[in-house]
């Protein structure tokens, strides 16, 4: 089975900084009728306090599964098969009942892509925020409502909307409501899984700008998951690139943008046309992401890679190799120093 070493050198440049969340060798499998699908395979990364950590990859690469594993929301047929997740030193995978309830909302909040499904259609948005607050604190309904009002204003929703039902709000306002709810208990980490994918670019921009303001104000960390690499490069401090269940490159946003080392990252970067600069022909990536029931041998990207080394890439599974203190890539070219020659 595939294996990526846990390379500490790929973590924060500031060694004194204690990570808020550490994920080590995390593996998650879906046990389906047609076989076991290893959706996440030995993935390791850290998220530091106050940091935006981005995870990017295409559909089926395992990025959402990681979000679910961290928040302990995996449901059968998905099972955590191995690894370790620690939040402020505590073992997340062993949290039970009350401790897990407190962990979710009070320490880690979640914002999913579809705000429509995250909100209860028969409750007003005010009541839903009040519910979350009351379930976790000793606040009275009145106090909680006052707090809900404050939160809605923080995310730019007019106070008079507090008694609106979700269907009366636009998509952008619904997603803001979900973000307000996530902020309710001042969590240290907010996991955001494609939070703006269903929104138009202008609304996306509004929400991202507000989010950055809120982050400055409250100091939480964000795990931001999206397939939109250009958005991720703009907002993240560090980024991990996933392919077929594995973390294939991890770097600061700047390094990733200026000097991506894994051929998949390079091709992915080159899959987003820009609205500025010289117009050039772009190729995207030939082929399709692999079937994870029967993943390719060796490097999982080799069937789509234009830089395959004969006798190596098809046979040997590459490990994540540190390039410097903040940059690591899982590619044989990096290992052999052949990369730049190509």
């Amino acid at each position: 089975m595939a294996h990526i070493s846990t390379s500490d050198s790929a973590q924060s440049p500031d060694a004194a900084l204690k990570p808020l969340l550490t994920v080590r060798d995390l593996s998650v499998e879906y046990r389906t009728k047609s076989g076991r699908v290893r959706a996440v395979d030995h993935v390791s990364f850290d998220i530091n306090a106050g940091e935006v950590f981005g995870l990017a990859g295409e559909s089926g690469c395992g990025k959402s599964t990681i979000a679910h594993a961290i928040t302990r929301l995996l449901k059968p047929p998905a099972y955590t098969e191995g690894g370790d997740i620690r939040f402020q030193g505590r073992n997340v995978l062993e949290l039970k009942d009350d401790a897990l309830r407190a962990f979710r909302w009070e320490h880690v909040a979640i914002v999913f892509q579809s705000a429509m499904n995250a909100l209860n259609p028969i409750l007003t948005i005010g009541d839903q925020i009040v519910d979350v607050i009351r379930a976790h604190t000793g606040m009275s309904t009145r106090q909680a409502r006052a707090r809900a009002l404050e939160l809605l204003q923080v995310v730019g929703i007019d106070a008079k909307r507090i008694d609106s039902y979700p269907h009366q709000l636009s998509g952008g306002m619904r997603q803001r409501t979900v973000i307000a709810t996530a902020l309710a208990l001042n969590p240290e980490l907010i996991v955001m899984d494609e939070p703006t994918t269903a929104l138009d670019v202008v609304v996306q921009k509004q929400i991202i700008d507000e989010l950055q303001q809120l982050k400055k104000q409250f100091g939480f960390s964000i795990l931001f998951i999206t397939h939109d690499l250009s958005l991720l490069v703009e907002i993240s401090d560090r980024i991990g690139i996933m392919y077929a269940g594995e973390l294939v490159e991890i770097a600061t946003a700047r390094q990733l943008f200026k000097n991506p080392r894994h051929p998949y990252t390079q091709r992915l970067m080159n899959s987003f046309p820009s609205i500025h600069g010289a117009k050039q022909e772009m190729l995207g990536i030939p082929g399709s992401p692999p079937d994870l029931i029967h993943p390719p041998t060796g490097c999982r990207f080799h069937p789509r890679c234009s830089k395959v080394i004969a006798g190596v890439c098809r046979e040997i599974h590459p490990q994540l190799i540190p390039l410097d203190a903040t940059h690591a890539a899982a590619c044989h070219l990096v290992n052999e120093g052949l990369h730049d020659a190509n």
């Binding site: 690499l229 091709r267 992915l268 899959s271 995207g284 990536i285 399709s288």
Partner: peptide, 11 residues
Amino acid sequence: LDVSIRLGILN
């Protein structure tokens, strides 16, 4: 479509 294959279709 997945981002990596969009350009193939546009091309």
